[in-house]
């Protein structure tokens, strides 16, 4: 294991800003794994730290294939994590909206450029990422539905779901999208949480990544193979929206199978305690995403259901 500084900016009153990478093996740039890019992505950081520890042990045991290089970058934004701010310290920009970056541009464009120069050479790219809305997910692997993706590869993680995301205009500046454009097979790994640690789904993601490495001949790993992944397009998921704003009281949990008509949540009046709305499942399905805050606005997609296959 080699610990390298991938990108560095001189600080004024803070220690220098450093992006640190952990390299395992030498030779062909086989797989790069990236952790938190936003200051609240603690679970993503945790998942990578587990992988660094695990890969270090596997390297010592000779279980990593010679001639294949693995790079893990647990955190692309230590400055923001250390002050618990989601976006960049001074100008509030999002590094994950700056790819492929620009070396003569603004600070976060430079960081994106400095990191992307190193990681765009890898054959596979895996990013632990978070959703823009706070909530809990079924663990899954996500790919951009850009026409360049290979869903058969994504199944090798053995995660319960592979989600294909329709590309929106603002996606074109994310790491995942640019990895694909520069011919890296890119996967986003979603575990259950972001701001708090969930060990169970972190373990599952770790197993998924090691299984993938094994199937690609990058490492020897003999855990269980996981699931036969179901491929779902994000546009085919059924959203359940609130009609009213209020307190959000869920009646189900993520991963639960629900029949059509089942009550998913109740919206409660914040002053008078009355139930002002009952949200029910419009289809037979599985709860894939659930809103994670105690309050909700009106018109908010608080559930996403995967329609149950016949």
């Amino acid at each position: 294991m080699k610990k390298n500084t991938i990108y560095e900016i001189q600080g004024l009153y803070r220690d220098n800003f450093r992006v640190t990478g952990y390299e395992f093996g030498e030779g062909e740039e086989a797989v790069c794994i990236v952790g938190s890019m936003r200051g609240n992505e603690v679970q993503q950081l945790y998942c990578c730290s587990r992988l660094v520890k695990k890969l270090k042990g596997m390297e010592e045991e000779g279980k990593l294939t010679p001639g294949k290089k693995i790079l893990v970058i647990p955190c692309v934004n230590p400055y923001s994590v250390n002050i618990q701010k989601r976006f960049w310290t001074v100008d509030n920009t999002d590094i994950n909206r700056m790819f492929p970056g620009y070396d003569l541009g603004e600070t976060t464009q430079r960081i994106a450029d400095g990191v992307f120069r190193v990681i765009s050479a890898y054959r596979f790219g895996i990013q632990f990422t978070s959703f823009y809305m706070p909530g809990e997910f079924m663990p899954h692997v996500r790919m951009m539905d850009s026409g360049l993706e290979d869903t058969e590869l994504a199944k090798q993680f053995g995660m319960p779901y592979v989600v294909l995301r329709k590309v929106r205009p603002y996606d074109t500046t994310t790491l995942n999208y640019n990895w694909q454009i520069w011919e890296t097979q890119a996967f986003s790994m979603y575990t259950n949480t972001t701001t708090r640690i969930d060990r169970k789904s972190a373990k599952e993601a770790e197993r998924g990544i090691l299984t993938f490495l094994h199937k690609q001949g990058i490492a020897q790993y003999h855990g269980h193979d996981g699931y036969l992944s179901q491929i779902v397009k994000d546009v085919d998921m059924v959203s359940v929206r609130t009609g009213k704003a209020g307190l959000f009281e869920p009646a189900v949990s993520v991963g639960e199978e629900v029949g059509r008509g089942r009550i998913l949540a109740r919206i409660i009046d914040t002053y008078e305690g009355e139930v002002i709305e009952e949200l029910t499942a419009p289809v037979d399905g599985i709860v894939f995403f659930m809103h994670g805050e105690p309050l909700t606005y009106a018109d908010t997609a608080v559930f996403k259901l995967v329609v149950r296959e016949e």
């Binding site: 001074v90 603004e106 464009q109």
Partner: peptide, 8 residues
């Protein structure tokens, strides 16, 4: 006044 490397 505060700038980082890269700030416009």
């Amino acid at each position: 006044p505060i700038v980082d490397e890269g700030s416009l």
